[in-house]
């Protein structure tokens, strides 16, 4: 911004901005184009080094048969991609990934909204409740995994005990030892871990709903459920879409929690694509194949989000 005759800041005129934009008066002055462009350099360097290069290198690697152990690499074209399309382990991992993502995102949004409605109610203790509800989001993944594994332990786990008591689990066993129950149990942990994010976002969105709308509804005799259905939910539609997109991308790529909980077992029941990438790269050292899986993961995640936004999303998103 310019400093005016009185020393106060004034905005440059539109003409000046336009002139700079068209390069007619590029110079090193504070309003000059060169200086402005220079400020972009750190961001561009950051984007190129930390995003563009790794993505491009992953793409390059996926066309190589890269033997990391022996340090040998050779071009194999799209072979890895073709092999993956015929690999049942890949498809099962993708299916697990979708279950993990859909279950996790759905649960986080529902629990997050419920928690947001709770903390939005007036009350003295709500500050404490809000703080407590944020804890799952700040606890390290390793602590979360160890704690939940013990809660699901076959002999001493309180949750295994409860599940057994209500008839959902045979006595003295753990959901993590069952092909059918391991993924639902892991999803519960994922929901617990991620719902505070949805809670905070929903809670912020709830503050923006005009109180007048609720007052008008009350005058018309609407009940709490009707208010929620006809006022609250419509106002949260846009933020829900944003949350779905963000959490889908997050959960789809979320590696550490599931790996620490189950290692992808038992018998591959919770092995999703990020774990498959890890095992292929740091277990089998086949970095080319791992890069191809990572590439297909990116494409799949992109497709899911695009599809969702196309179907449900406002155009401005």
């Amino acid at each position: 911004m310019h400093s005016g005759p009185t020393g106060s800041a004034v905005r440059p005129s539109r003409a000046a901005v336009g002139a700079v934009a068209f390069g007619r008066r590029r110079n090193w002055s504070p309003t000059g184009g060169y200086l402005g462009s220079l400020f972009l350099v750190p961001t561009l360097v950051f984007l190129v080094v930390l995003i563009a290069y790794p993505v491009a290198y992953n793409f390059y690697l996926s066309f190589q048969d890269y033997n990391y152990l022996l340090g040998v690499s050779r071009f194999v074209g799209p072979r890895h991609y073709v092999q993956l399309l015929y690999d049942p382990v890949f498809w099962r991992s993708l299916a697990n990934n979708l279950v993990w993502t859909i279950g996790g995102v759905g649960g986080q949004l529902v629990l997050g909204l419920a928690a947001a409605l709770l903390v939005d109610t007036p009350g003295r203790g709500m500050v404490v409740v809000r703080t407590l509800l944020l804890i799952p989001y700040v606890v390290p993944a390793i602590a979360t995994a160890i704690t939940w594994r013990w809660m699901f332990n076959d002999f001493y786990g309180i949750l295994s005990f409860v599940l057994t008591a209500v008839g959902l689990l045979p006595p003295q066993t753990s959901p993590f030892a069952s092909v059918e129950l391991a993924m639902p149990a892991a999803i519960c942990v994922g929901i617990w871990r991620g719902f505070p994010f949805a809670m905070i976002v929903y809670w912020a969105a709830l503050q923006t709903i005009p109180a007048a709308e609720y007052e008008a509804a009350q005058v018309d005799g609407a009940g709490t459920l009707q208010e929620f259905w006809n006022i609250t939910l419509p106002h949260l539609g846009h933020i829900t879409l944003v949350l779905v997109v963000l959490r889908t991308l997050w959960m789809f790529n979320y590696f550490d929690l599931l790996y620490l909980l189950t290692k992808g077992g038992p018998a591959g029941a919770t092995q999703h694509l990020p774990i498959l990438v890890y095992i292929t790269s740091f277990g089998l050292f086949r970095f080319g194949e791992a890069a191809a899986i990572a590439g297909l993961m990116a494409v799949t995640a992109g497709l899911i989000v695009t599809l969702y936004v196309r179907i449900h999303g406002p155009k401005e998103l």
Binding site: L69, G265, P266, A267, L284
Partner: peptide, 23 residues
Amino acid sequence: NPLAGQIESSYVFGDAVQNVILR
């Protein structure tokens, strides 16, 4: 030899026995 390291870092034996019991 290289295979020794790779067997350790892969889950081949663990997966095999789990698949017999669970699948």
